[in-house]
């Protein structure tokens, strides 16, 4: 299973580069163009990362989340799931940056190769930021009546998180 994970990226890089060379495009120039756009993307998400870290850290440092955790933790303890993952589950559909911040904190305290580090990685990787995407895409074409989009999207997130827990317990514990 690890073998598949290891070879996917090199294979994709190989296909992209050889196909580009085969089509005789200016590969190096393409790369530089794309990379500089990537840099612009980083700059454009920087303010929202600062904004979210600001709010999230106030929220987390205040300990408000302990109120919620008090109810959920017993269930997670029964399943042997570390409680530090709970804030991330609650925030994943709201803000990708916010849940990235929590992943960052989990990596800093437990390391990326701990069980909780792997579970956080899986949850972060398996789904996108539903509320942000809906706001951005519907807002771009001025649609206000979104019908079942929100709860259907959140339902998919919930399935993703539950599956992440099950799969990580099977693979990594």
């Amino acid at each position: 299973m690890n073998f598949i994970s290891i070879i996917i990226i090199p294979i994709i890089v190989f296909i992209i580069v050889t196909y580009g060379a085969f089509k005789k495009i200016d590969i190096y120039n393409s790369f530089l163009n794309g990379a500089s756009n990537g840099l612009k993307t980083v700059f454009s998400i920087f303010p929202s990362i600062i904004a979210m870290i600001f709010a999230i850290n106030i929220f987390l440092d205040s300990g408000v989340i302990n109120l919620l955790l008090g109810w959920i933790t017993p269930l997670f303890n029964k399943l042997n799931i570390p409680q530090s993952i709970v804030p991330m589950m609650l925030l994943r559909p709201i803000s990708g940056n916010a849940s990235l911040v929590i992943v960052d904190q989990i990596f800093a305290s437990y390391g990326p190769d701990s069980f909780v580090g792997r579970l956080a990685s899986t949850i972060q990787g398996c789904t996108d930021t539903t509320i942000y995407v809906l706001a951005l895409y519907f807002g771009s074409v001025k649609i206000t009546k979104t019908r079942h989009a929100l709860y259907n999207g959140l339902f998919a997130d919930l399935i993703g998180i539950i599956t992440s827990i099950i799969v990580c317990l099977l693979f990594f514990s």
Partner: peptide, 22 residues
């Protein structure tokens, strides 16, 4: 991380399930 890419398979399984049920 000793194995940064090891979560590819687990998150792929999770993402396929969430898309399917969604």
């Amino acid at each position: 991380s000793l194995m940064p890419t090891e979560i590819i398979v687990t998150s792929l399984i999770a993402t396929v399930c969430s898309s399917f049920f969604g």
